[in-house]
């Protein structure tokens, strides 16, 4: 590979890294906010899947009805679906106080089945996958030498890095609500004594998280693919669960983790298309293995929110 080839390869790789990281950023930040309130939402995989489906189905029909901005309507529908599923999660885990992990898995199973049921009901068994014209990447930077392709990204990618990340960090660390979220996640009894409504704050965190997770799923169907298929999320929700721990529940470190994963993922894809045979599964398993290793190393000192997995019940 000569120098120009190498530069093109690196630029393409960097651009792809940002694209791959985008849905993970939405999902990871959603899970961080949720877990900071003391709720582990294992519904994430299913909520992303439902977001991908609801977003696609709504966009498809809005487009057929000739509505402008059909993709953004799809995005809104996805987030609404995420809110509904997160609402169910909040009802079960916050108000009823059932096992968070079993409830979360139940949400994933339910959302997955509902989305598949919905897809089959709405679109039938077509041999050809229904499609919409997906989001285009902004082409503002064509004149920028070399870095242009890196800067030409989806609006949603810009949104993830420039809006959702700073907003999440501000919300958690500098707002009243964030203070309440961290309080109910660390020590709900003390928060309650301080006059914070534990149930309401936890539920709001779960809801906000669910909307973000669904948006991450919808990025896959509305930006990356323009279609919906059963394998669309493919474990990205579980990757986000791992990234949250890797990030020690901090939004900025969560985005860093998503970028690292995105980089590895984009690299293996590129090397494969260049004809290298490599055990890409080993690379894809890295986030899980690194997370487990990190847990083993930090051990008891892992920065779990104090009330992680613990339902709160007012006596």
């Amino acid at each position: 590979m000569d120098n120009t080839g190498l530069a093109l390869f690196l630029v393409g790789w960097a651009a792809a890294t940002l694209r791959v990281a985008t849905p993970l950023i939405f999902a990871t930040l959603g899970e961080i906010i949720t877990e900071r309130a003391g709720v582990l939402n294992l519904g994430i995989e299913g909520i992303m899947f439902m977001g991908a489906f609801a977003g696609f189905a709504a966009a498809f029909h809005a487009h057929a009805a000739g509505l402008p901005g059909y993709l953004w309507l799809g995005m809104a529908a996805a987030m609404l679906a995420g809110l509904l599923l997160a609402g169910l999660m909040a009802l079960l885990s916050v108000y009823l106080g059932v096992n968070q992990h079993v409830a979360g898995l139940g949400i994933t199973l339910l959302a997955t089945a509902l989305a598949l049921f919905g897809f089959r009901s709405v679109f039938g068994e077509n041999a050809v996958l229904p499609r919409v014209q997906p989001f285009a990447q902004v082409e503002l930077f064509n004149s920028v030498p070399l870095l242009g392709p890196i800067l030409n990204q989806y609006a949603l990618t810009y949104l993830a890095f420039l809006v959702v990340l700073p907003a999440s960090a501000w919300l958690l660390y500098h707002s009243h609500f964030g203070l309440a979220v961290r309080a109910v996640g660390e020590n709900p009894e003390a928060a309650d004594a301080a006059g914070i409504n534990v149930y309401r704050v936890r539920s709001l965190a779960v809801l906000l998280g669910g909307a973000l997770m669904a948006a991450g799923g919808a990025f896959l169907s509305l930006a990356q693919l323009g279609s919906f298929s059963p394998g669309i999320v493919a474990g990205r929700g579980w990757v986000a669960i791992a990234l949250v721990i890797f990030a020690r529940w901090d939004p900025a470190r969560g985005v860093l983790g998503a970028l690292i994963f995105g980089g590895v993922f984009a690299l293996q894809l590129r090397l494969q298309t260049l004809g290298f045979t490599l055990p890409y599964e080993a690379l894809l398993a890295l986030p899980y293995l690194v997370t487990i290793l990190a847990l083993a190393l930090t051990g008891r000192h892992a920065a779990y929110p104090g009330a992680y997995l613990k339902p709160y019940r007012r006596e």
């Binding site: 582990l40 579980w238 990757v239 398993a285 487990i292 051990g299 008891r300 992680y308």
Partner: peptide
């Protein structure tokens, strides 16, 4: 040995 919660570790090993 380390008192590390098993929910996430067992879950992540499914993907592995």
């Amino acid at each position: 040995k380390l008192a590390i919660d098993e929910v996430v570790t067992t879950l992540l090993l499914n993907s592995v």
